[in-house]
């Protein structure tokens, strides 16, 4: 097996001296597509931020491309899509410029971007259904459009690892389908993708590897092995019912008459 692109070895990390994840061991191989699931406050975002060097690491090591990640030191060759936080409407930043920020660390030290870089930004915006929005201030875009734009920013540097924090939250169905289609396309082209989500049915149906976390890793494996009532109860502290129909896995609320879930394919 090749060496992992991303490795957590006994990692305890958090904020202000308070660990949000503890003793995490997780190795991700190049080209994998991994979903991290867990309840709110379980440390999903901290796990990603430990890779970007924006959280404190109290024990263990995070290794990216065989180089140790240190808190406060920026890492390279990552595309990162943060949780959506809407930008103010009057922010004077055009959509294309926001996407091009993804190249800020590697681009030439002049205030403008090259024709090729601009063409790449336009092509990405087009792929994400934002053709014609290049000159639109980002604050005038809808939440779903801003989420697509953040994904374009994460993709523009052709990073070998793209991490997404809750990309499925707060977006409409069309945006969701576009984003997921693009992630699938990226992954097929060899990009390693790690994302966090609350959408259990979607990860069960779409991702080959799922990591359940609640401060510590509870389970790690293929959906068929991980999506069990016992594992999810240990992860979420709530009882669920798993319905299996061939390859399909459906997670439902275990309470009587609960029918709040959607079937995943």
């Amino acid at each position: 097996m090749s060496s992992p692109i991303l490795a957590f070895d006994g990692v305890t990390a958090g904020y202000r001296g308070k660990p949000a994840i503890e003793a995490v061991d997780l190795h991700i191989q190049p080209g994998e597509l991994v979903g991290i699931v867990g309840p709110s406050g379980s440390g999903k975002s901290t796990l990603l931020r430990a890779v970007t060097g924006t959280t404190d690491i109290y024990a263990g090591t995070v290794t990216l491309h065989d180089r140790r990640v240190r808190a406060g030191h920026p890492t390279r060759d990552i595309g990162f899509v943060p949780q959506l936080a809407l930008v103010e409407p009057d922010t004077p930043l055009r959509a294309a410029d926001a996407v091009l920020h993804g190249l800020a660390a590697s681009s030439r030290r002049v205030p403008w971007y090259s024709k090729a870089e601009r063409a790449k930004a336009s092509a990405l915006l087009e792929r994400l259904g934002l053709a014609g929005y290049e000159r639109q201030p980002i604050g005038e875009l809808s939440g779903g459009q801003q989420q697509r734009l953040l994904l374009a920013r994460a993709m523009i540097a052709d990073s070998s690892l793209v991490m997404l924090d809750e990309p499925t939250s707060g977006v409409d169905l069309q945006t969701l389908q576009d984003i997921l289609g693009l992630l699938d396309e990226l992954n097929r082209a060899g990009t390693t993708i790690v994302l966090t989500t609350h959408d259990l049915n979607w990860v069960a149906a779409s991702l080959p590897r799922i990591v359940c976390i609640n401060q510590r890793i509870v389970a790690d494996g293929a959906p068929a092995d991980v999506m069990t009532a016992e594992v999810l109860e240990r992860t979420y502290g709530a009882s669920v019912r798993i319905v299996r129909d061939g390859d399909r896995i459906l997670v439902t609320d275990d309470r009587p008459h609960a029918a709040s879930t959607s079937e995943a394919r």
Binding site: P74, D77, I78, V110, P111
Partner: peptide, 25 residues
């Protein structure tokens, strides 16, 4: 400002995003 325009504008408009994309915000 001319030389560091790109990291400066990224950091000022989204410091957390800039850190995650290799900028010493």
């Amino acid at each position: 400002g001319f030389v560091f325009w790109k990291p400066l504008t990224f950091t000022i408009t989204d410091a957390a995003g800039a850190s995650a994309h290799g900028i010493r915000a």
